[in-house]
Amino acid sequence: MPDHSLTGHVVPSRVYILTFVALIVLTVLTTGVAYIDLGYFNTVVALVIAVSKATCVVLFFMGLKYHKGLTRIVIIAALLWLSFLIVLTLADMHSRDWAPLPQPWQKAALSEPHR
């Protein structure tokens, strides 16, 4: 924490109240949007709103805004690592049948001429 006084960094209550209001508004918004047909974008919007809400909580309630770089790196690293896990796992799953390779147990595929 940059503030090395005995009380630490005291945030004005106004900031907390505003964060709270923003979070409530975003909750209403995300619930409301779910009732509008946006196709795939429903998911996108839901995630964007969730990320914004989480950011509000982290920055103000958890005070990351007032922390120096190190703490931020910790959280960013954890998220980055989580994205490694998700992205590479999904990448495998969804590219499994790109190549028309016959599987050994698929007799029919083996007897077909190669494309």
Binding site: L88, A91, D92, M93, H94, S95, R96, D97, W98, A99, L101
Partner: peptide, 11 residues
């Protein structure tokens, strides 16, 4: 294991 060969390539 049955993992996609493209993922295998990257790994």
């Amino acid at each position: 294991s049955g993992q996609s060969i493209y993922a295998g390539l990257v790994f």
